[in-house]
Amino acid sequence: MNRIDASDHYEVTATGQTPSLLTIILDTNPRAWQALGPTLSISAALANILVFVNAHLAFGNDNQVAILAAHSHRAVWLYPKPPSSDSNNSSKNAVSSFKKKAGLGGDGDVEITPQFAAIESSILSSLQSLIAETDAADIPYTTLVAGALTTALSYINKTALSFAPAKPSSTDPNANTTGNNNNGSGGAAAAAVAGAQQAPTLHARILVLSVSDSEPAQYIATMNAVFAASHARIPIDTLSLSPHASPTFLQQAAFITGGSYVSASLNPRGLLTYLMLGFLPDAEARAHLLQATQDRVDFRAACFCHRDVVDTGFVCSVCLSIFCEVPPGDAGCLTCGTKLALGNYGNKPAVVPRKKKKKKRVNGVSGREETGSATGTPVP
């Protein structure tokens, strides 16, 4: 064609938008929301969150959303709803039903994004049933955030696998055999390099709306989830709403995973403004924007012995467990059992007397070392 009409023709390939999965963890502790009620009610917060969710879904047809409730004793799905347990259905059918409700086809194909009204009704009905099942006599002041983070990471992993392209079979004659040696190491190395350079098929992130303090008893489980998210390159964003709480561990989660931590405790009524301006861009768009950063990060950890948040403590040299005080007697580490030895820790430093310096003598006459003069005091 170029020789016929003397013009250049270019083959343009259409590149689709990478899907973005937003997983929202909503802190639904009743005590914390009751304290925040005069400023921001949970009904007003849900209305703002739904507007934010609709804006995220409107950015692309392939965008997905998942919402969990981090309650007092458990983590509950608000959207999509998990499939009901039926003994007649197999686990494969259950997973297929769960993926369809999440906007994914049972065979891995992406379906049309559900209507906004369906998402709203699912969230409201699930939240109402959760509140109805909550016993008012047994409500702690903290929230099970660690369980919600673990559940969100599991859901993100399953969704990413459904978006990933199918791997070629070893018996496929059309499989790539470039660089194939006698032992096949060249082809494996080329496949590894190609997999490392492949663009991600899903941009996933987690947004935590916190209204309560971090529970020291959940420190280990929370940090395990945070490091797993960091390894998977999933940023964890945190928006703190309550002026009466300080989510210490979530500050560290945002710092470790490269997310954003914003405190809206001074004006919780501006929740929608914080959500739209600070947390609407996904991980790909944030590379071209200036995100909100933390001026101060609370890096305090919880001790493994009393579950107290401490500023300074003792660390086991083997398993890196943290203790607020030395185990009494000959007791070893509570985690690995290693006997802890502090050596001379706590002893007063030894005082070594200073040696007196001798005065210098020049031509048999002693001079003063303080002034550096070689001559003595004049005499009459």
Rank of each mutant, 00 (worst) to 15 (best):
M1W: 05
S7Q: 12
D8W: 12
E11M: 08
Q17C: 04
P19R: 07
P19Q: 06
P19A: 07
S20K: 10
L22F: 08
T23C: 09
I24C: 12
T28F: 06
R31N: 14
L40Y: 01
I42Q: 14
S43P: 04
N48I: 01
H56C: 11
L57K: 03
A58H: 10
D62Y: 06
D62F: 06
Q64S: 09
Q64D: 09
A69H: 07
S72W: 02
S84V: 15
S85L: 08
D86N: 15
S91Y: 11
S96A: 15
S97N: 13
F98G: 06
K99A: 08
K101E: 14
G105Y: 04
G106D: 11
A117F: 03
A117E: 14
E120S: 12
E120V: 01
S122I: 01
I123Q: 03
L124P: 01
S129F: 12
I131C: 09
A136S: 15
P140K: 03
A148D: 03
L149G: 01
Y155A: 04
T159C: 03
L161R: 12
S162H: 05
F163P: 02
S170T: 07
N174Y: 12
T178A: 08
G179E: 08
G179H: 06
N181Q: 11
N182Y: 13
G184P: 04
G184A: 10
G186W: 00
G187H: 03
G187A: 15
A188M: 13
A189I: 15
A192T: 15
V193I: 14
A196G: 10
P200S: 09
L202Y: 02
H203G: 06
I206D: 01
V208S: 02
V208H: 03
S210W: 06
Q218Y: 04
I220M: 07
M223T: 01
N224T: 11
A225W: 02
A229M: 03
A232M: 10
R233C: 07
S240N: 11
L241S: 06
L241M: 09
P243Q: 02
F249V: 09
T257F: 01
T257Y: 07
G259D: 05
S263K: 11
S265W: 14
L271W: 00
T273S: 15
Y274M: 07
L280M: 06
P281A: 09
D282P: 05
A285N: 14
A285L: 15
D295A: 09
R296A: 12
V297H: 00
F304P: 00
D308Y: 00
I322V: 07
P327Y: 00
G329N: 09
D330S: 11
G332A: 03
L340A: 00
L342R: 04
L342I: 04
N344K: 13
G346K: 10
G346Y: 00
V352K: 09
R354M: 14
R354H: 07
K357L: 12
K358C: 02
K359S: 15
K360Y: 13
R361W: 12
G367P: 02
G367A: 07
A374G: 08
